[in-house]
Simulated scan of single mutants.
Amino acid sequence: MLASAHITTVYFITKNCRIHSIGGDWNAHAEENHAFQLSADSVVNTLLWEYFTEPFLIHTYHTMVDHVFKTGEPVTVPFRGDSPGWRRTMKLRILRSNHDLCEFICSTQDAEPREWVRLLDVTAERSSYWLPMCSWCKQVGVDETRWLEVEEAQFELEESECVPYPNLVHAVCPDCQVAIGELIPGNEKRSRHNTRHWSGGKVRMGV
């Protein structure tokens, strides 16, 4: 069953960031994105780091989980949870469930349908190139200085005849490195002084 406009996914993480259990609309959201390999049964007992390797993301998740376990205080951060047919503004709330587990609750705050975005469609044909997509705001880094909304990035790729589309990989744009860093206790100093202006990208536009 495909996800509705408003979705809520829930998962529990151990102290070493291993996925303990999953609930809510997880499977429906995975199906909506044709990410069948990310079904609940497939990801339980795996580490978060098996799904992204971007250093800032790893540091951020470690910091959030450590803070929640040590203080018992929840952490809340906004993010975009888009799919090809939906633009979603979402909220991630991390709570200490017990001594051994944190609960991650991802809930939709607003949802807007849109024309199908093939750049986000995992079934679309891909080239051997790749571009970074920000895990928080879902903008795509099209060169060393510009991050665009996914529809704009798709338009530029097509105008530059960069089709088949490149693969998209997890990254964090410079603006989100600062904004998210300042929302997380203990992360503020790093976010201001360790912002990277380019998280990858191997597509040359206009070639």
Rank of each mutant, 00 (worst) to 15 (best):
R146V: 07
P78V: 05
I19S: 01
I7F: 02
H197I: 05
R96N: 03
E156I: 04
E188S: 10
L2C: 05
L38D: 10
A153K: 06
E158T: 10
I58Y: 00
D121S: 03
W130V: 01
V77F: 10
G181T: 09
T14W: 01
A40P: 02
E125M: 04
H29F: 15
H20C: 01
T8Q: 14
S39Q: 06
I7Y: 03
E144Q: 12
E188R: 14
C176M: 06
C162D: 07
S160H: 03
D41L: 08
A40R: 10
D121N: 12
G23A: 14
Y51A: 04
E50C: 07
E50V: 00
S97Q: 15
M133R: 15
T71L: 08
L148K: 04
S39D: 07
T63R: 13
E125Y: 00
V77H: 09
E112Y: 04
H197D: 01
C173F: 08
G81I: 00
W136Q: 02
E161Y: 04
H99L: 11
M1G: 13
R192F: 12
G85R: 12
I22Y: 03
T145K: 11
R93E: 15
Y61F: 13
C17L: 12
S191A: 15
R190S: 03
T46K: 11
C106Y: 05
L131D: 02
E115Y: 01
V172F: 06
D66T: 14
E32W: 02
D121G: 05
R190Q: 08
W130I: 00
S107A: 13
E54I: 01
Q109R: 13
K70M: 11
G24K: 04
L120E: 06
R18Y: 00
G186V: 08
M205Q: 13
S135N: 06
A124F: 05
V178W: 11
I180C: 05
S97K: 13
W130D: 11
E156D: 04
G85Y: 02
E188W: 02
R126D: 07
H34W: 07
Q177A: 01
G181D: 08
E31P: 00
F69D: 07
R196L: 12
W26Q: 00
Q109D: 13
D175A: 14
R80H: 12
C176T: 05
L148F: 06
E152D: 13
F36K: 09
W136D: 08
K15I: 01
T53Y: 05
S191Q: 08
T89D: 15
H29R: 11
A35D: 11
C134T: 03
L47F: 11
G24V: 05
V169L: 12
L183K: 15
A28V: 00
S191P: 03
W136N: 09
V68I: 15
K189G: 09
S107W: 01
H59T: 01
Y165K: 08
A35Q: 13
R146Q: 12
S21Y: 00
L119P: 01
A3T: 10
R88C: 10
I94K: 06
V77A: 09
S128R: 10
P55Q: 07
L47Y: 13
E158K: 10
F36W: 14
E112R: 12
G24Q: 06
N167L: 12
K189Q: 14
W130H: 13
A153R: 06
F104V: 12
F56W: 11
A171V: 03
K138R: 14
